[in-house]
């Protein structure tokens, strides 16, 4: 990794990314509550945001402003990309929550097990 000096020093940011990712992923898989699943999904996505943003950092770099005293810039492109990704994430969460609301209207619960139980009954 030495040849890619624009990466931030050390690898601790990756450890954070991986930790967040696994936490989020675990919540999505293990929780039966539909809202908690969405929370997990958000954490999972956040980890990706961190991954992108941290890779844009250049050691000693500043915000990309043209002018006196600003010579080394951090790469702004990942930030911009992540802005888009955040918007997408919000849309997904909103839609997910809307679905949860509708599911609650129909089933009267947002617990996966209860929904499954209701379906088994009607079958």
């Amino acid at each position: 990794m030495e040849s890619f000096t624009f990466l931030s020093p050390g690898l601790y940011n990756y450890w954070i990314v991986i930790f967040l990712m696994m936490v989020g992923f675990y919540i999505v898989i293990s929780r039966g509550n539909l809202v908690k699943k969405l929370v997990g999904l958000n954490i999972f996505q956040t980890s990706v945001f961190v991954l992108y943003i941290s890779m844009g950092k250049v050691e000693g770099g500043t915000a990309p402003i043209f002018g006196e005293g600003f010579e080394t810039f951090s790469n702004p492109l990942p930030h911009v990309l992540i802005l888009t990704a955040i918007v997408v994430g919000i849309a997904t969460t909103a839609l997910g929550l809307a679905l949860v609301v509708r599911i609650r209207e129909e089933y009267g619960t947002i617990e996966e097990d209860d929904i499954q139980a209701q379906e088994d009954e009607t079958r």
Partner: peptide, 23 residues
């Protein structure tokens, strides 16, 4: 509704995996 929700979770996971790979 539950099918759509399930798809939303799996689909978003898939898309996020794609973004990680791309990153």
């Amino acid at each position: 509704l539950t099918a759509a929700y399930q798809y939303l979770i799996m689909g978003t996971l898939g898309a996020t995996f794609y973004v990680i790979g791309l990153g």
